[in-house]
Design a protein around this nucleic acid. Structure first.
Length: 537
RNA sequence: GCGCCCGUAGCUCAACGGAUAGAGCACUUGACUACGGAUCAAGAGGUUGCAGGUUCGAGUCCUGCCGGGCGCGCCA
């Protein structure tokens, strides 16, 4: 393209932004570019004239079948069938690695998500992040980044004390305090603690509380891990807040921030002047009673991540924590980093669950909640992950229980999975009549249905790279739905196996490659979403 | 009051500043002598909340309104 511009006879300086993209409308060719319109002003010529000049050069390029100038000056480029079809061969050769790139090579990304408190089960709000976060982990890796998925455990401070007190109360057959934890799981955990440490109830209250806190936490974290693993979500690191306090990391972080000159004392407390960096008020690091805040631990946690060599930290937070963004950015700035360079804070809008037209309130404290386990019981892992991952995180989501529990063809996940099963079936049938991957003649792929399918298949690496860059896993799901539709239409119009007793030709053999390439892309795409790609349904 | 997010078809939602704003569901009508119809084809459905601005071009960017969600602790 650059070459075409240089040799087009136009006098223009070269540094400019050229956008080449796939047009939405297939009549606009395989690729389209706005370069002529961008150059109209610098060259002082009408966009269409610029376009014509560039088009004249492009038409001579190898593999290009047609170049049209359209509308206000779009250049629409169509590839020759053979060069379009070559992608099928490339995909089959690349197999499971097709779609991977080194777009994000060199980035060491810490991806923190879910981070459910060890005082209750994983609920639906976390579940959205579990599905999106795990997919994002896979996407970032596919785009060439080095990624650690991390789950932070808030196991220090008042909430954990309340949880231990609730366990103790239940174990002693007393009423749980008003502000304690009341879900059924509290009884289960208390019972398990007593089974593991039968003499716990004979201990003095303070010691008993300590046992309930530590054994209870272990059981809760194990529960979180189990629930998430069942959902196909795995973390590389489970990071304990308590260890930051015990190791002196929090103290060290306070010292570092004080050195940087952003710490001050007031009213007996220690503060961080986060307002210097856009926060709407300063924040307390150490309370006047000497206790360090959650915020102080988070500063230490950030420094710990940086110390472990991550050059990018991604936080996935619920909308109810968005007030935390300013603080987080201030921590980063106070530590001497540029927040725009080292952190990404993704805010996910909350999931609202509707049953019989009425909202189901999620309340962890009250114990009336839809948990991840219940969600999986209702809809299964595949439909659950897919239905949470196919929507952009910043859209408030309303899920109708009846709709997701109706695990039928209504759900797009089945549409995509069926397309995959169909490729497998077509492959088996083709093999049965002796059509294998022996002949590849891409110049025979002349149908508009094949062109559409091949174009879509060739888009896959770019879809992954874009989704990773924008931290938007839902783009993969939407792409797969489009691809499945394109495949179904191709399948209906371009037979792999000749009908009746028609002769098998190289067209049929080459279509087997196209079918196989589609199977690979669907499988690779579903893998990125953590959704199973069934061979039969 | 201040801050962040959202407002797109009847419903749930897409759309790196690009061409005629797209899918699914629901609705209407076709294709079952079928490489598994869990599919395909066609139809209907829109002032992208409102008003300005920037741009060759705005659902997208800027400003101001209106409506909804969430947040504004020495809690986590």
């Amino acid at each position: 393209m650059r070459d075409a511009v240089v040799h087009s006879g136009l006098e223009v300086t070269i540094p400019f932004q050229v956008v080449i993209e796939r047009p939405k409308n297939p009549e606009h060719g395989d690729y389209t570019t706005n370069v002529a319109m961008r150059l109209a002003k610098p060259t002082g010529q009408p966009a269409r004239m610029v376009a014509e000049a560039i088009a004249a050069r492009l038409r001579d390029a190898e593999g290009i079948a047609k170049v049209d100038v359209a509308g206000p000056g779009f250049l629409n480029i169509s590839l020759a069938a053979a060069s379009l079809g070559a992608v099928a061969h490339d995909i089959v050769e690349a197999g499971a690695s097709f779609g991977r790139s080194n777009e994000l090579a060199g980035q060491r990304i810490n991806l923190e998500f879910v981070s459910a408190n060890p005082t209750g089960p994983v609920h639906l709000g976390h579940t959205r992040w579990a599905a999106l976060g795990d997919s994002l982990r896979r996407l970032l890796q596919a785009a060439g980044a080095e990624v650690a998925a991390e789950h932070y455990i808030n196991d220090y401070g008042a909430q954990m004390d309340k949880f231990a007190a609730s366990l103790l109360a239940v174990a002693q057959g007393r009423e749980v305090a008003e502000d304690g934890y009341h879900g059924d799981y509290v009884f289960d955990v208390a019972k398990q603690v007593v089974e593991l440490q039968p003499d716990v109830l004979a201990l003095p209250e303070a010691e008993a509380l300590g046992v309930f806190r530590s054994v209870g936490e272990d059981l809760m974290v194990e529960g979180l891990r189990t629930s998430l693993a069942r959902f196909g979500v795995h973390f590389d690191v489970w990071f304990s807040e308590r260890t930051l306090h015990e190791s002196g990391a929090v103290e060290a972080a306070l010292g570092r921030l004080r050195e940087q000159g952003h710490v001050f004392d007031q009213d007996g407390a220690v503060w961080l002047r986060t307002t210097d960096f856009g926060d709407d008020r300063d924040r307390v690091l150490v309370r006047s009673n000497g206790e360090k805040t959650y915020f102080a631990a988070d500063a230490a946690y950030y420094l710990d991540k940086r110390g472990r060599g991550f050059n990018r930290c991604v936080y996935m937070l619920g909308a109810d924590h968005h007030g935390y963004v300013g603080r987080l950015r201030a921590i980063v700035a106070c530590a001497g980093d540029d927040p725009d360079q080292t952190i990404d804070v993704l805010i996910g809008q909350l999931v609202k669950l509707v049953r019989d037209g009425e909202e189901v309130r999620l309340s962890k404290r009250a114990g009336t909640l839809i948990t991840l386990d219940e969600f999986v019981d209702l809809v299964g892992v595949d439909a659950g992950r897919y239905s949470l991952a196919r929507w952009s995180a910043d859209t408030p989501l309303v899920l109708d229980i009846a709709e997701i529990t109706r695990a039928s063809s209504d759900n797009p996940v089945y549409y995509v999975q069926y397309a995959h099963a169909r490729t497998c079936n077509a492959k088996r049938n083709a093999a049965d009549v002796g059509i294998g991957l022996d002949v590849f003649a891409p110049d025979l792929l002349t149908s508009s249905y094949e062109a559409a399918l091949l174009t879509a298949l060739g888009d896959f690496p770019r879809v992954i790279a874009t989704a990773a860059e924008l931290r938007a896993p839902h783009r993969v799901a939407r792409y797969l739905e489009d691809l499945a539709g394109t495949y179904h239409r191709w399948y209906d119009n371009c037979r792999i196996i000749p009908s009746g007793d028609g002769e098998i030709t190289d067209v049929n053999r080459t279509r087997a490659w196209v079918n196989e390439a589609t199977r690979i892309v669907l499988a690779n795409g579903l893998q990125l979403l953590g959704v199973h790609a069934p061979e039969r349904m």
